[in-house]
Amino acid sequence: MAKITFITSDGETTTLEATSGSVMELAVQNTIQGIDGDCGGVCSCATCHVHVEPPFVERTGEASEIEKDMLELDDNVNEFSRLSCQLAITEELDGLILRVAK
């Protein structure tokens, strides 16, 4: 079980729990504003862009080349950017805090 907190661009904070799937799926199921996940999680739409709160960056790990290329041309990109469809939910991510980029 992992608890994951989303902070939307208008400041709304939601904490959700899950054991499997991707962070994007969790957000879409719970209609977190700004995360659409249009492509269903194959890294083709960039509608699940989040900023990982700095203390958690080590735990979420590094983006793949394909994900980096996708992020590079997206709005609001910074060094903490990730596509949440590429973050698989594991116990390791318990406590994770994410800011929705859009």
Binding site: C39, C43, C45, D69, M70, L73
Partner: peptide
């Protein structure tokens, strides 16, 4: 079941 699929069939960027 291609997992990473950054295809451009719907275009790309703000005009997608």
């Amino acid at each position: 079941d291609r997992k990473l699929n950054p295809h451009l069939s719907f275009g790309f960027g703000h005009h997608k």
